[in-house]
């Protein structure tokens, strides 16, 4: 069966990488704790320094458009309705009705039961549908339920699955358990035709307490086969921060050196202004490299960010400051 082979792949790749005959929790612990520690002060200083870059005129115009095309336009509320998701899809299809040159965001990110609605609304526009799964946002459900949640989303047509890791298991040092779970969800992302939905692994960095843990969780997620590593659910504060994203960008850069596999990064939650978004783009370019400046490899999980980018875009176009009356409320 393909699925077990795939899971076997992840395990055997991990065994090769770790240089062990059997993948045990001890082996994973040794490997993860052998990663160099993160210099907290240095990391935060570098993130702050990169945030002071001045991006103007044509570079700013490019960055705003790039940022828009990297957005996973998100609605993850208990009060979501099918109509709200449809209107959000409408916004993704035509972000700014006053300017047809505005790029579209990369994806719509919704709960699993909204996937079919979003899929239908977006049609063949090329905008992808991401579904959060595995008992998002806490992840506190049995593995059986989490896998069923994932399969549900994939069957409904989701192009991408955003899973949450079991932070409890991770923080108690049960790395093998987390590894197995990610690998199992990755397996559940397989479609009947053999293709696979892209898997984004949400580490919920706000609950991981230290940058060392963020680095370890990043490596563990990549080892288990995640296509993307994502900071947060957006339900926990702090959500995405520049230093955390810096650690993750270093991880994906080093991971490609190590294995040849490129993994994407998605900061999510708390990114609301164009200024913030531009800081992230500077960091992507400086830390990971321009290869990541692409919607396939870098995403913003955001909802209100799009409107702020549109306002900035209008300002560049008209030369006058714009206001909330000139963008749609989603």
């Amino acid at each position: 069966m393909t699925s077990t082979a795939d899971k076997g792949d992840a395990a055997s790749r991990a065994r090769d990488l770790l240089g062990v005959g059997r993948l045990t929790n001890a082996a994973l612990t040794t490997w993860l704790h052998g990663l160099p520690g993160v210099d907290q002060v240095g990391c935060e200083a570098r993130a702050a320094a990169l945030g002071t870059r001045s991006i103007k005129t044509t570079a700013k115009a490019w960055a705003i458009d790039a940022a828009i095309s990297m957005i996973d336009l998100t609605t993850l509320e208990g009060s979501d309705t099918h109509d709200k998701v449809r209107s959000l899809c409408g916004k993704a299809l035509v972000p700014d009705p006053t300017d047809a040159t505005t790029p579209r965001p990369a994806a719509i990110c919704v709960y699993g039961d909204m996937v079919a609605t979003a899929k239908k609304a977006l049609g063949d526009s090329g905008i992808r549908v991401a579904s959060v799964a595995t008992a998002f946002p806490s992840g506190r459900a049995s593995m059986r339920v989490r896998l069923a949640d994932t399969r549900d989303g994939v069957q409904a047509g989701a192009d991408e699955i955003d899973m949450v890791i079991d932070r409890g298991a991770f923080l108690s040092g049960r790395y093998l358990e987390v590894f197995d779970q990610i690998a199992a969800v990755r397996e559940a992302c397989l479609r009947a035709d053999g293709s696979s939905a892209h898997l984004k692994v949400i580490m919920e960095t706000g609950e991981l307490a230290t940058y060392d843990n963020v680095r370890r969780a990043s490596y563990l997620s990549m080892l288990a086969g995640g296509h993307f590593i994502k900071t947060s659910t957006g339900k926990v504060s702090p959500a995405a921060t520049l230093p955390v994203t810096l650690v993750m960008l270093e991880a994906v850069r080093d991971w490609r050196e190590l294995t040849g596999t490129q993994v994407g990064v998605k900061p999510a939650g708390g990114i609301r202004t164009s200024k913030d978004a531009l800081k992230y783009l500077v960091m992507v370019s400086e830390v990971a490299g321009d290869d990541w400046l692409d919607p396939d490899w870098f995403r913003f999980g955001a909802s209100s960010l799009l409107n702020d980018l549109l306002l900035q875009r209008q300002k560049l176009r008209t030369g006058a400051y714009s206001g909330a009356d000139y963008v749609t409320i989603d």
């Binding site: 030369g319 006058a320 400051y321 714009s322 206001g323 909330a324 000139y326």
Partner: peptide, 9 residues
């Protein structure tokens, strides 16, 4: 002039 042209004013 910036206040006069500001669309949110």
């Amino acid at each position: 002039p910036w206040l006069a042209s500001h669309r949110d004013v």
